[in-house]
Amino acid sequence: MATISSRRRSAIALATAAALVAVGAAGCGSSDSPASAQPNPSASASTAAGVVTIRDPWVKATDKGMTAAFGTLVNDGDTDVTVTGATTSLSSMELHEMAMKDGKMVMRQKQGGIVIKARSTHALEPGGDHLMLMNVTKPVQAGDELTFTLTFADGRTQQFRAVAKPFTGAQESYAPGHGEPMPGMSATPGMSMSPAS
């Protein structure tokens, strides 16, 4: 009788241990699955953990002067988030917007920062809000990766990387006097707002 009880106890202990190992392995697999099941081609250039997610970040390639960084800011949280500043080692930066002035489209500093509403997205794009690199210290060539740091209204910061791409759409001129009307920015219908790949 005692032998049968010992065997049963041993069998139960082994079954319990096996079940715990199986549950532990399944738990590890499920936490890794979403990232590996949904590959992100620009994973190194996107930030999924932090204040916001930055989707498809890119920078307009340039030889000198001014340029801009673009992408989509995603706020999955329950409260609005405000970007109040951006920095990179390549130049000083400002948050910019395009707005109508005297019937013409002009570029100007965005007052109050860039607000990303709760559970929504905010596009940074040519002809709209963007992160302005004021005076690059060296050429930004297609394929270069730049690191940016965003600062938020609550003092938090977040880094992301963006790749440089050639872009001729919208004919934007990021040159001194950027508050002046810009050639080619008369909201021409059908104008491409995507970088060359």
Rank of each mutant, 00 (worst) to 15 (best):
M100V: 14
Y174W: 15
N75R: 06
F148S: 03
R161M: 04
S36E: 14
R7Y: 14
L133M: 13
C28P: 05
G71W: 05
G103F: 12
L150S: 00
I116N: 00
G65D: 12
A26G: 08
G113H: 10
T16L: 13
A118M: 03
S33A: 13
N75S: 01
E180Q: 15
A48I: 15
P181N: 10
M182V: 14
S44I: 07
M93C: 11
S92H: 12
A45E: 12
H178C: 15
I4T: 13
P139A: 06
A164R: 02
T62V: 13
V52T: 07
K64P: 09
E172C: 10
G177V: 11
G113I: 11
F167K: 05
S5P: 06
K117P: 04
S89D: 15
M100S: 13
F152C: 07
A164I: 01
E172G: 05
S10N: 09
M107H: 03
M182E: 13
A45D: 12
Q109G: 04
L133W: 03
A17W: 06
H122L: 08
L95C: 03
A162V: 01
A18I: 09
L133S: 04
P189Y: 00
P57A: 09
R161N: 07
S6K: 13
M132P: 02
M182C: 14
F70A: 02
S92D: 15
M66I: 03
D78T: 08
G127I: 05
R55F: 14
T147Y: 09
A187H: 09
R156Y: 11
A18K: 04
I54A: 04
G128N: 13
Q38D: 14
S6L: 12
S30L: 15
P139R: 07
M98G: 00
A37H: 11
D80K: 05
A13N: 09
A2D: 10
V81T: 08
Q141R: 10
G113T: 13
G103S: 11
S89N: 12
G65S: 14
D63N: 15
H96A: 10
V52K: 01
P183N: 02
G169C: 01
A86K: 03
T3V: 13
G24K: 01
S5V: 12
V52F: 10
A162Y: 00
D63W: 12
